[in-house]
């Protein structure tokens, strides 16, 4: 699945430079949905502390592959996510989900991570829930990114990686529940994807959220959630049925006399 950076592909990109076919980075999400990431995957944070993916997975997890030397889209993606999470949503940051920004660049280290974190400037109270991390063993990078269909290319002339800007929603058992385009969705899409990643394991007080989520379904073509129209049609027709019932019980009272006389 993974196309490794190679002279040939660099050349390919040089010729097309600013005109890269975005389809190369398209993740065929139907192929990768449900893929399980190894919970024992070792990661390390900016302080060098090692931890496993499993520790992040008590709740759904939003996984963002970035690289910290990036001065373009990666900052934009993380900032956009931060901005979305600052918007009022169904779930407050950190309640019911966490975020993991993970570098796919083997050259990243604690220093570049630290600089990236400073630029991102997460609020203090978020820092427990939004972790910026590196692969503890850079040898895992290709395997893990390849497993979820995340492709990237190093373009030497541009001194930059080309990669998809995608949010990956992992369920608590470490399976990919949904991909969302990192740049073109709103808070509601985010909430919906988190609810989906929970596999319906919601708390009783969240039942309203859950019912609301039934009104939407994911459109693979649009890459976002759209209204689940048949549900509304169905609900409307049920209402019609109930109205018919109530109607026949109450409205026809007058009819009684006339019919009996006719007959």
């Amino acid at each position: 699945m993974l196309v490794a950076p190679s002279p040939a592909s660099s050349q390919y990109f040089r010729q097309r430079e600013s005109n890269i076919d975005p389809k190369i980075f398209h993740i065929d999400d139907k192929t990768f949905l449900g893929v399980k990431l190894d919970p024992a995957l070792k990661l390390k944070d900016g302080t060098g502390r090692e931890f496993t993916l499993k520790e992040m997975l008590e709740t759904p997890l939003i996984l963002v592959f970035s690289y910290y030397r990036c001065d373009g889209s990666c900052s934009a993606v993380n900032s956009a996510l931060k901005a979305l999470l600052e918007e009022p949503g169904r779930m407050a940051m950190g309640q019911g989900f966490r975020v993991l920004t993970l570098s796919f660049d083997e050259h990243d280290d604690a220093v570049t991570l630290g600089k990236f974190a400073t630029d991102l400037d997460l609020p203090e109270e978020w820092k427990e829930k939004w972790t910026l991390a590196l692969f503890a063993d850079p040898g895992d990078i290709k395997r893990v990114t390849g497993r979820v269909g995340f492709k990237f290319f190093w373009s030497a002339p541009d001194m930059t990686f080309f990669h998809p800007n995608v949010l990956i929603f992992l369920s608590p058992d470490g399976r990919v529940a949904r991909y969302l385009n990192a740049m073109s969705n709103d808070r509601q899409d985010l909430d919906m994807a988190i609810l989906e990643a929970r596999k319906s394991q919601f708390e009783p007080h969240e039942i309203v959220d859950y019912v609301a989520s039934l009104c939407f379904s994911y459109s693979f073509k649009d890459g976002r959630y759209v209204y689940n129209i048949p549900l509304f049609v169905g609900a409307g027709s049920l209402l019609l049925g109930i109205l018919l019932l109530v109607g026949s019980l109450v409205i026809f009272k007058k009819k009684k006399v006339t019919t009996r006389e006719e007959a």
Binding site: S217, Y218, S219, F220, K221, D222, Y225, V226, Y227, N228, I229, P230, L231, V233, G234, L238
Partner: peptide, 20 residues
């Protein structure tokens, strides 16, 4: 595309409505 998952439809919803 009411029931076409590629375009936001829901395959399972028909089954729900039908059995409802």
């Amino acid at each position: 595309n009411f029931f076409n998952p590629d375009l936001g439809g829901d395959v399972l919803l028909y089954q729900n409505l039908f059995w409802f």
